[in-house]
Design a binder for these strands. Sequence first.
RNA 1: GCGGAAGUGGCGGAAUGGCAGACGCGCUAGCUUCAGGAGCUAGUGGGGCAACCCCUGAGGGUUCAACUCCCUCCUUCCGCACCA
Length: 827
Amino acid sequence: MDYSFNEIEEKWQKFWQESKIFSARPDLKKKKYYLLEMFPYPSGKIHIGHVRNYTIGDAAARFKMLDGYNVLHPMGFDAFGQPAENAAIKNKTKPDVWTSKCIDWMKIELKKMGFSYDWDREVSTCNSDYYKWNQWIFLRMYEKGLVYKKASSVNWCASCETTLANEEVIDGACWRCHTNVELKDLEQWFLKITEYKERLLEDLTWLKDWPQRVLAMQANWIGKSEGLEIYFRLKDSTQPAGSGLASDSQSHKPAGSGLASSGQSQKIIPVFTTRPDTIFGATYIVLSPEHPLIKEIIKERPQEREVLKFIEKVSKENKIARLKEDVKKEGVFTGAYAFNPVNNEEIPIWVAPYVLMEYGTGAIMAVPTHDQRDFLFAREHGLAMKIVIQRTESGEQRTEELTSAYEGDGIQVNSAQFDGLPNQEAKLKISQWMQNSGIGKIQTHWRLRDWLISRQRYWGTPIPIIYCEKCGIVPVPCEDLPVELPKEAPFTGKGGSPLAKVKEFTQARCPKCDAQSLRETDTMATFFDSSWYFLRFCSPKFEKGPFEAEAVKYWMPVDQYIGGIEHAILHLLYSRFFTKFFKDMGMIESNEPFTRLLTQGMVLKDGEVMSKSRGNIVDPDSIIKKYGADTLRLFILFAAPPETELEWDDRGIEGAFKFLNRVWRIQDNLKEKASPALVKILHKTIKKVTEDFEEFKFNTAIASLMELTNAIYLFGADREVFSKLIILISPITPHFSEELWQILGNKESIVKADWPPSDPNLLVEENITIIIQVNGKVRSKIEVSADIEEDKLKEIALSDDKLKPWLQNKPVKKLILIPKKLINIVV
RNA sequence: GCGGAAGUGGCGGAAUGGCAGACGCGCUAGCUUCAGGAGCUAGUGGGGCAACCCCUGAGGGUUCAACUCCCUCCUUCCGCACCA
């Protein structure tokens, strides 16, 4: 008979809920442990990915509880967002009704898994007692100058009819619907995340317990590159230089350059480089086709028409086409020349799409000998090359012999007074020298852009701003919060600001002058909501602010955060930004929100990601029905380590179920007293399982629990041994363990049990097996007492009969003895 | 191209310098059962009758000893990307 998981699971779920056993309270006498799993979007059904994420978290949380920690393990719902609007239209209901229904279903499913959440702390971001604080935070940021509105070219998804943050554009397409993103000029709200770029980058080194790849992805995204902006003077064109520096665009004006007053040709082309050490090898300049100076420098030149045609052609190509290999070498000569500021050589100016307007200054100095892209371009168009860095290991090279650019380190040559210096040193010296001479400026470029947060959607937090004809942009005073989202709006699933069509919403009085005014009708990106929910969990019902200082002081930072790798950039970067902002406001002490991060791997079926279109979805609910939640939990933790991908296997589930039944049946055959051999195995298992749990190695912890079970079948367990096994497995299979715990006569929940310590005396072996190798190959094993003397052991080993064929007539050259492990005889 | 992770039986995986393949799935045999897609026990990397030999993506190195450390290369997955 299989154990009756249905009955048992329901019984204990009810008990946990009614006893509020997982309610967390600050307690200064205990060590706190804040364990958090990324909260879900309430789609209505939990999928296998949720199950894996939350099972890993739950096993860890329950282990920490037993191990004596005061554990905070909350759950909530990231409830705003576009799918609710689409679903509401499809099902002819309202987003709030649909969302709360989904939350209800989802909670039922989460409870069926037996997760140890403190449900009293549940938050949903779509409730006004939550999003009120979104608005409050927005206003605080506004006061600090971290929120601004700007007309700019923004990413626009025509299908969703809304704007997107840079982080939401994946391969030039909308992250949600994969429609190609277009650029649109709009007035939008931005958060100045760039204000924090240095700290967001530097503090990554502080996050020692984050996966390397997440740190790398964040660093990559912030994209710091240090270098030099160099000013190239344009050679006088045939026409009189009518336009001076004043006509140049603001951003390209060389700040502090003494050249502006020199009276000759004033036109300056700034370029950005990370390799100032190669400046003497710059043999041409390339402008991006979008560069604003092009039209001026080609005016009335023979090349004018050709260049314009080229630009026209390039502008029609999309970004992806521009990256194609054969397009890479395309380019056209402008007819104009500039002077290399370090040696006054005349170098030609080209236009090519391999230079991007978005990065640096939109112009580069090309050094074909030391940059592979420049090399390919120069070879294609027959442009000059000049070696300025000599490889140290090989002799002198000639430019004609080059088959590729040399991008490594070496010694400066053809570089005037810098000849003979190692290039890394020259890099610094040249930068300094050029900066002092006013022909360069040491600069740092960043990839990170400010965060666009306006969305033209209904189901989100209204941005708390009022537009008054007289006073302009006026923030809503805090006492007027929340700006409630109206219950109804004519949303279509498309954008076009549904709120703009709700008169009762748009009409407002100016807080300053009381004049009839209009409300902002954009809502906030939902990533705003999830950037601080971990703080709200510390005091979810606090009414005087987004969170209570004392509660946050006790619980923060999150000791262990668990979630999917897909949030490696967006959510984690934004949360780090918010945390730093709150710290600067003096509201919290932590500088970083998440001390440890675990990114769990995906669940695959037949080697592929589960998806509706592939039709390979495993529905957690049907597994629970067939085997129970404990079996599902056990399988998911056993099948693979948490960080790696997990291959779903129906037979594996069966195996997990079989194991639980095997443990269940132990109760029928308990002995009066277990053998010392079994007790020893138990204590070894305790040690191993404890260590494994601490490192989230659940798969090997389970393996050693299976070994213990196998040993029990061999030797027969007593109540003591069986009880300990039940506690050890309880973080993984909580219902099952509660039931057996009760059957064993315990009155209190197993949640309140103590994690068993392993007795060091029982871990000591009296007899140990020593491996004997000859020339590194295992030839024999001997069993000896653990405290045997080394000489005696050597003697026994050398006289071992099994070794005779290997030792015959050969002198022993060397003998390696590793205490308690092995002997290696070298002959 | 840059950055990150990985490559071990038929499969999921274990071992972080010291017995390669723990544990499980699958498979094989036996026992048990009226019967079983249940349970129990044993076996199960490859070659060889055997003694033995071979085996952790490939090749080299360090070491008494290498899945593990170092070098070169290959492959796969993920992120970024003509980022100057």
